[in-house]
């Protein structure tokens, strides 16, 4: 193996990576926001006793978990405009698509987290006269969130990596920028290595944080 690494060319193009990372982070933020809000709503609906809420949520979750995200993205970008006349830009399409996809998984995290809290907790809250919303907000969710942190960070990392699929909609996120760069420089090894390291640097702090939180909450019971 006598491949000669050439990093100086990559360094010259550092602005390209910065630009790509910005788009990746924007995609991540929007998709996360959509995924969280919709995921919480779906998770609560999925845990509901009313079938009118529970069944639609279950159907949504099953559809999005049973089909490939790549197909979902392409469908939202190419098929949805024809059917509905709604044409979103590529960054919006990718954010929405990844967000809708993540919502299905986040909903399951919320549902499982809520279900893992002992029923006695909601009995106690109800016996004090609390309503459903108060019991959720003050008693159930604060406990459930702690149990949801590890799977949630996991989903967050997955979500950030999924943003690379934006490249099929020609979104200039990190991977897409890198591929364009390779077409100019013919340095795929260096470029992909940098992309991998940059993703690692963006994601690892959250994994570390999750482990710290878990440790801290464990000691308090």
């Amino acid at each position: 193996m006598d491949y000669i690494w050439q990093w100086n060319q990559i360094w010259d193009y550092r602005q390209v990576f910065v630009r790509g990372m910005q788009v990746t982070l924007i995609l991540t933020c929007w998709a996360l926001l959509i995924g969280l809000v919709l995921g919480l709503a779906l998770g609560l609906m999925r845990s509901s006793r009313l079938w009118l809420l529970r069944v639609p949520a279950a159907i949504y979750i099953d559809i999005f978990r049973a089909t490939p995200i790549l197909v979902q993205l392409v469908w939202i970008y190419y098929a949805l405009p024809i059917l509905s006349g709604v044409q979103m830009g590529n960054i919006t399409s990718a954010s929405v698509g990844i967000g809708l996809h993540a919502a299905a998984y986040i909903a399951e995290i919320f549902r499982a987290g809520i279900a893992s809290i002992d029923r006695g907790q909601s009995d106690a809250a109800k016996s004090l006269g609390m309503g459903y919303g108060q019991a959720m907000r003050r008693i159930i969710l604060p406990q459930a969130v702690r149990r949801m942190v590890p799977p949630f960070i996991n989903e967050f990392a997955t979500l950030m990596k999924l943003t690379t699929l934006g490249s099929v909609l020609a979104v200039n996120e990190l991977l897409h920028e890198a591929e364009n760069l390779i077409n100019n420089t013919y340095r795929p090894l260096e470029t992909y290595t940098v992309v991998a390291v940059l993703f690692g640097l963006m994601i690892y702090p959250f994994i570390w944080l999750s482990q710290r939180l878990e440790q801290r909450w464990k000691t308090r019971g």
């Binding site: 002992d118 006695g120 009995d123 106690a124 004090l128 006269g129 008693i139 406990q143």
Partner: peptide
């Protein structure tokens, strides 16, 4: 419910 206090076998403190 608020006018009836309840105490449980498994305490159910928060």
């Amino acid at each position: 419910r608020a006018r009836m206090g309840m105490v449980f076998q498994s305490f159910n403190l928060f």
